[in-house]
Amino acid sequence: MTAPTSTVPVGASYAEGSVLDWSRTLLPGRVVLDEQVASNAPWSAVVAAGQVLTIVDVGGNQSADCLMYNAADPEERYSVPDTLTWQQNAYVTTGTVLRSNEGRPLMTVVGNEIDRQDTIGGACSKESNTLRYGHHVMYHHGCRENFLAEASRRGLGIRDLVSNLNWFMNVPVEADGALGIVDGMSAPGRRVAIRAEMDVLVLVSNCPQMNNPCNDFNPTPLRMIVVEPSGAQE
């Protein structure tokens, strides 16, 4: 059937003619999951210990907001401050160990095709959008809402949302402490690969933000590939 017309002001999608590069897994291995995440949508999966998740920035500079939980005990979850403290650095890059609120490794960045990844900027939300841009955008969709919807499918809720990671987003901290989301350093087909150090529930929001450059004002899809690694990096 043809789609009905609608008066609902749904979020934008990518402009016609946008370059999309679906790429492939960053590390070789037996593929156990290969899914596309539509613009603006949430996604989740359990990545078993030892498996590697490749996230493909299909359209370029598309923020993939990400939270991680110990799948066996979700009270243990991703912690920005622990990740930063243990590596004594504010940026995420190859080799960064993504740690839990108990200081334990949840995942490790084993492949990365952009200079640095962000874990300071947090997630957008309907409410914080009103502070940042004005109440006229309150009706826009946000990552916090994506996280809540996807978390609820996994038995988790608002108490389980904490500061997150933003793959393919660029948040520099300047000498005087000035901080903000600026134009990204990614491009269509760029990837990051993260290896699970325990069985990890991964939640992703394909950021629907239309008011800052976290997705280049052009929300594009993501590709998620999980492999059982078979050897060295391609």
């Binding site: 300071i120 900027g121 939300s125 309907k126 914080s128 502070l131 402490g177 903000g180």
Partner: peptide
Amino acid sequence: NVADTQKIPWQAYLGAGHPLLSGDG
């Protein structure tokens, strides 16, 4: 919400005038 507390004022370092924000705007 520490991320919003740093991001929304465009400033990472706390000082006089800085709001300590929740995740609810």
